[in-house]
């Protein structure tokens, strides 16, 4: 693919994303429909908050390596938004949440989220930076023993080192929800966390625990985008098949694609 093609595709990609987001927001505002699907573990968060409030133990919110400025900036922003909504409701506790990260550029994000929701006390010492990866995992594990968080919400960028943190949390009976924008971290989260979100659910998580209608619309736009890509892939695949099998026409291919998509929609509804 030459430069021009890449650039044209990139512009198209961004344009479609903007159009989808704007359209979804329009429909959300007009119909007031809740367009978001369910995410695992979200209904646990209020209970953890209550536990935090009642036991005076902090919630632990971890960004991992998600850092502003790097390529996981969107993950850091989504995690910050997610944590913002969590912290909003944690300020009834007398312990502000503990926010940790290994990308120093994320420190202002974490601190900002704390400060907005937690206007009293000193938030600087509740947002903690540690050098990345294993050192970070070690520090968090130590903190698990020391601060005894009520629960862990780990959203951001994690690798295999997530295992150390989740293991020490598990050992002390502290519940956890984890999601990583990295594949290895995602697999570890699935195996070890009490609740794991997968991949792009990180970006849908903020609106799943907030009343932010715009956020729900964005999450819906994300689902539509994904649906479009699945549709495109299915059509291309069937067209490819139809070339090999002369009996299949393109109409048939489109019809089959439509059936596939309908099945997909039904399945996703059930979920």
């Amino acid at each position: 693919m030459d430069d021009t093609t890449v650039q044209v595709y990139s512009v198209l990609f961004i344009a479609i994303t903007v159009v989808l987001v704007v359209t979804a927001r329009y429909f959300q505002a007009r119909r007031g429909r809740r367009m978001q699907r369910q995410l695992a573990g979200m209904d646990q968060i209020p209970q953890w908050l209550m536990q935090s409030i009642e036991t005076g133990k902090p919630l632990h919110l971890a960004f991992g390596g998600a850092g502003v400025g790097g390529d996981n900036t969107p993950a850091a922003l989504a995690a910050a938004e997610f944590f913002h909504h969590v912290i909003q409701n944690a300020d009834a506790s007398d312990m502000p949440p503990l926010v940790t990260m290994s990308a120093p550029a994320t420190l202002p994000l974490g601190q900002g989220a704390l400060r907005r929701a937690w206007r009293k006390g000193n938030t600087l010492s509740r947002a903690q930076w540690t050098p990345p990866d294993l050192a970070y995992a070690g520090a968090v594990s130590a903190s698990v023993a020391d601060d005894e968080p009520a629960a862990h919400i780990m959203a951001g960028s994690f690798g295999a080192e997530l295992a150390l943190m989740l293991d020490s949390a598990d050992r002390r009976g502290q519940p956890s929800l984890a999601v990583s924008d990295r594949l290895d971290g995602g697999a570890v989260a699935y195996a070890l966390a009490d609740h794991a979100l997968i991949g792009e659910e990180l970006f849908a998580a903020p609106s799943a625990i907030s009343t932010d209608e715009g956020g729900r619309a964005d999450a819906a736009a994300l689902d539509v985008w994904r649906g479009l890509i699945i549709l495109g892939a299915a059509v291309l695949l069937l067209l490819e098949f139809s070339k090999q099998l002369p009996l299949l026409s393109w109409q048939l291919a489109l019809g089959a694609a439509a059936v596939l998509i309908a099945l997909g929609l039904i399945f996703s509804r059930r979920r």
Binding site: P74, E200, L202
Partner: peptide
């Protein structure tokens, strides 16, 4: 999963 993350990143960017 990576595709989903990329889409999520694009929406987050917007």
């Amino acid at each position: 999963i990576l595709l989903g993350i990329a889409l999520g990143a694009a929406v987050a960017g917007v």
